[in-house]
Design a protein around this nucleic acid. Sequence first.
DNA 1: GATGAATGAGGTTTCATTCAT
DNA 2: GATGAATGAAACCTCATTCAT
Lengths: 217, 217, 217, 217
Amino acid sequence: MNYYKEAFERATDERKKQILESGIEEFSSKGYEKANINIIAKKAGISIGLMYKYFATKEDLFITCLQRGTQILDEALYAIMESDDRLLVKAEKLIRIIVTHSKANANYIKMYNEIAAEKNADRVKSMVAEIEKKRSEILITAITQALSKGDVRPDLDPRLFAFFLDNLLNALLFSYTCDYYKERFKIYTGVDVGEMSDEVVISQLLKFIESAFTFEK
Amino acid sequence: MNYYKEAFERATDERKKQILESGIEEFSSKGYEKANINIIAKKAGISIGLMYKYFATKEDLFITCLQRGTQILDEALYAIMESDDRLLVKAEKLIRIIVTHSKANANYIKMYNEIAAEKNADRVKSMVAEIEKKRSEILITAITQALSKGDVRPDLDPRLFAFFLDNLLNALLFSYTCDYYKERFKIYTGVDVGEMSDEVVISQLLKFIESAFTFEK
Amino acid sequence: MNYYKEAFERATDERKKQILESGIEEFSSKGYEKANINIIAKKAGISIGLMYKYFATKEDLFITCLQRGTQILDEALYAIMESDDRLLVKAEKLIRIIVTHSKANANYIKMYNEIAAEKNADRVKSMVAEIEKKRSEILITAITQALSKGDVRPDLDPRLFAFFLDNLLNALLFSYTCDYYKERFKIYTGVDVGEMSDEVVISQLLKFIESAFTFEK
Amino acid sequence: MNYYKEAFERATDERKKQILESGIEEFSSKGYEKANINIIAKKAGISIGLMYKYFATKEDLFITCLQRGTQILDEALYAIMESDDRLLVKAEKLIRIIVTHSKANANYIKMYNEIAAEKNADRVKSMVAEIEKKRSEILITAITQALSKGDVRPDLDPRLFAFFLDNLLNALLFSYTCDYYKERFKIYTGVDVGEMSDEVVISQLLKFIESAFTFEK
DNA sequence: GATGAATGAGGTTTCATTCAT
DNA sequence: GATGAATGAAACCTCATTCAT
């Protein structure tokens, strides 16, 4: 579903990009409430009047910015999940992508983190679907396939396990990008997330996950 | 550390409770930015001037509300962790507390979720310590003890595993209380979090975790 | 240096005038702290929002009002000082201008008096430069020239004498406009400043000054 | 005239001193409007309730603080003026006292400077009398005596000359104590008032004044 | 005499949105 | 399509003063 007006479709790609990137920059650095749509327009090089020809409200602009971010990650995930790898190999690739992506697209992750705190129930529904739908399908499918192949313990619920797995991945995303989670990482590990070796984090998380999916002790 | 003024200490318990509950109610339902101190004061039955005799800023009031919530959960966790149970028994108790607590103290969890999205780096530091310090100590200690007893796989990093574990517990907390996470739960599992049997969630999460902590497959 | 935003430059001259005059009126009658921006905006016939499009803060508006007043006096002084008159002739012209100006621009003088009591050290620095720079240059130059021509006693320090001279002129400015100084004038002379002949004041002050600048007794 | 209530008279000297010094400190550092009477009470070690038993309003407290400051300077001036010295000798002593006093009683001078910017006409009248009455009498008397002795030029108006003289002395007082005047001094002389030799200032000002009072060139 | 809790009006500043051009 | 001037409600915070104890 689209949250922009027709006029936005007719804008040049360059302009679309300018607007969304300015928006992502502003929303991710200040949060939704403190973000200023007038500033976004100025940074994007368009007038505020035109901004309202493109988006009906601040909220619509926000969601559209968010969608742009979602696509990037989803595309990277798709590529992995379509492979024939065993689940744990997929998992490792997944984790590596998360780490890479969170460093390259910190601003998008911050926006995502922002809406996770959204209070308006109506707004939430449409946004959740926007963001989680594809990722959940990818994960559930991967686990379900592994289940039918007998690659994982047979008594697991694929949907719940996908959910738990995504919880871990999400937390990792945030830990590399969002202030609060960064500090929290430091409290737990004793070091800055930037200074800890990625390989240690990856290997430990993989250990944590792999046991979860395999048979008996 | 305290974020209230001396005058607040001198207030009656009844009044303290009124103020903090009004605050938690307002902050958790609207989020920090949209919450209105004047409304909190009115709900608590005091004047706005007195509110500022008790708390220097909106932020201080917020943190104090948050602390009230933290205590409740921390106390419940302490009780468990001081027991002599094996780690996985502790884990089950932990999960059960999380489920119970998130239902009984939904508003506090929402506030906690709120600050996880905080953008102001300075504010974040003090709040992280406030919230995570005790919980992290509890978890790290428990895992370290299990490690020395040989109850868990010897190649795990206790701090990172504590971190991963807390990520799962946090996600569970939010899934029972915060709009966004509730919707997300539904997308993954197909059902409302309120309608799914707690026992299924608990047993599945326990499976997910227990494998992670135990020896070989 | 400018203390207004670009938008203010683009406003019509009529509007600029409206705003600055409303501001000068309000600031000079109530003082900086008690002056109310909302009232200034209303008197100027614009919304408060627009006011803040023109000036970032109350303080910036104040300084801009002040500058408007400074210019008027500075221009009048320039004209005199560029002449070839002897110092004492210049002095007489100066005094006459001060008397005329303080009656015609009483409100500006009141604002100037206002900031002379400013307590915020940072604010003070920028404002002093704003107001005193040109006038000090004019006076110091005039005295230095007279010194090199041998028109005044050779053992005077031109900068300090310029300073003393300006002190007298300032006090005169205030005595014609500011409540406190008006009353003080009355206490010293026994009559209202408005009722005393300008010529008496002028001739007496000239006597006071002229001796100061000339050779021996 | 007194601006305090009867209860204040009955207070111990120690307490009176505490209150007035706290007041002078607060008023002189923040200015009348921004000064906080609750803070003054706290600094003085009394309750705000008692403060209002002593003074009916913030304004009354201010005036009473001011009076305390006035006394100190007036007493010093009295001593000089009662001597039999020639006017110019008195003038030098006067200037020296001003310099000394402004360094020792900076806070009082700041308060005095504060009310010179007062906008409320009614308030002003009573305060002017409070402050200027004695000083003006001292100066006018001294000049009148000198006039009758033939020590000064016969065509000067003693009241206006006393007024001009006081203007110079006032400006000097402020230049040693008040931010705005300090900066202004620097603009004129090129150096900080604290770094310039007192003797230079004194000798130059004396030159400026002495000529003014003596016969022909 | 002494306390200090309590009040609440009032002022600066922000910003999403509109609309005439 | 494009502009950007203009609006004004709303929110945080301050502080002189009162009054019950």
